[in-house]
Every structure is written in structure tokens, then in C-alpha cells.
Computed example of a mutant assay.
Amino acid sequence: MKAFRGAMHRQISFSELSSLVGQELGCSEWVEITQADVDKFADATGDNEWIHVDVPRAKRTFGAPVAHGYLTLALLPMLSQSMIEIAGMRNGLNYGLDRCRFTNIVHVGQRVRLRQKIVSVTPKREGLLVVKDVSFEIENEPRPALVAEVIFLLFPESGGRDAGRVNQ
């Protein structure tokens, strides 16, 4: 897959994040999942199960090789950053996931895109704890590839020296 480097869909300021609670941020651009992407992910993670990397066998059984669910999830940072830019943010930390479910198979050659909605924004550790509902849609499929609640801890440029430390 090629990293999406198009124009941001939306730019907001760090101080405006709370005003977006309950709002959908829209969708990212479509990204095609290639066999090369799947092979690289298999090499990086050691998950070389045949459904991912044995193309002839996977074609016979599934119609095409199956992308790793975690590969789809790993697209989250790239696609999220392509959708929204937060001005005045120094850095952000991945704080975790709740209710992550892989609800459909993504085959090699299919395209996926991210849809996200801000659920809550709460002050925490000199920053903001931002919870988003996300789904990865598969082009021309009624069910998404995955749905999850993702949590990020974001810090403003003006935060204290240790604002990015997780173990405060």
C-alpha cells in the first residue's frame, strides 16, 4: 500500500477538540491492500499463516489471500493523519483499544478506508484523552473489516516538560 499523502481533509486547533465530541470526522481515501503489503507484514510479525502468504492455496480456499486483521488495524495512524491535522499539538500517544472486533475478511486487492467519530475528550495528564469510534470499510462490502474504540492521549505544544510521560 502506498502512504496517502494528499491534502488534509480537516484542520482544527487543539483547543477545539472538545467541540467535536459526537461528530463524525468523515472518511479517509481508499487504500488498496497488496500482496507485497501482506508479505511485509507477515515478515515483520512472524505471522506467515498460509491464508496470508500461500497465494495459490489461499485463492483455492478464499478466492484470494487474506490480509492480516492487525495489518488493517495498523493503517489507523496513516489514515487518521490523512483525515485531520491538529494544530497546536506537540505529540500524541496511543493509549489503547476497547471493543476491537474483526468483522469481515479483507482480501488482497481490496481497498479499505477509515471512518472515525470522536466519542469523548477528557482532560488527563496535562493533555486530552480522546476516544474515537473507528471502522475500516471495505469497498463494495456491506460489513466493515473492523470496528473499534481507540484511545489517544494528546498533548498541547504548551504542555509541561514531562507531559508526554505515560508513567506519571
Rank of each mutant, 00 (worst) to 15 (best):
His107Phe: 01
Leu129Asn: 13
Pro77Asp: 06
Ile33Gly: 00
Leu75Cys: 02
Gln110Asp: 10
Phe136Ser: 04
His52Pro: 12
Val31Gly: 01
Gln23Val: 06
Thr61Asn: 14
Val119Cys: 13
Val130Lys: 06
Pro123Val: 02
Phe136Gly: 03
Gln35Ala: 06
Thr72Cys: 01
Met83Asp: 09
Pro77Ala: 02
Leu75Thr: 00
Val21Thr: 15
Met78Gly: 14
Ser120Val: 05
Glu29Thr: 09
Tyr95Cys: 07
Leu71Ser: 03
Gln81His: 14
Leu75Ala: 00
Trp30Thr: 08
Gln110Arg: 02
Arg101His: 11
Pro56Asp: 14
Gln81Thr: 13
Lys124Ile: 01
Gly127Glu: 02
Lys124Val: 02
Asn104His: 14
Thr103Leu: 01
Ala42Ile: 04
Ala74Lys: 01
Ala42Tyr: 06
Ser19Met: 07
Ala42His: 04
Arg115Thr: 13
Trp30Asn: 09
Gly92Arg: 04
Gln81Asp: 06
Phe62Val: 12
Leu71Ala: 04
Leu128Asn: 06
Met78Ala: 14
Ile33Lys: 01
Phe41Gln: 00
Asp133Thr: 12
Ile86His: 07
His68Lys: 03
Leu76Asn: 02
Arg101Asp: 08
Trp30Arg: 07
Gln110Asn: 08
Lys40Val: 15
Ser80Met: 05
Asn91Leu: 11
Ala44Asp: 15
Asn104Glu: 08
Val121Ala: 15
Leu76His: 12
Val106Pro: 11
Tyr70Ser: 00
Ile86Val: 15
Leu20Arg: 12
Val119Gly: 09
Gly69Thr: 00
Leu93Ser: 13
Leu128His: 10
Gly88Val: 06
Ile33Asn: 01
Gln116Ile: 01
Thr122Ala: 07
Val38Arg: 05
Trp50Asn: 09
Ala36Asp: 15
Gln35Val: 06
Ala67Gly: 00
Ile118Asp: 11
Gly96Asn: 15
Met89Val: 06
Arg90His: 12
Asp54Lys: 03
Leu17Lys: 09
Ser82Gln: 11
Phe102Thr: 03
Ile138Asn: 02
Val106Gln: 00
Glu29Leu: 01
Glu24Tyr: 03
Glu24Ile: 03
Ile33Thr: 04
Ile138Gly: 07
Leu20Ser: 08
His52Trp: 05
Gly127Lys: 08
Cys27Tyr: 14
Gly69Tyr: 00
Leu73Ala: 02
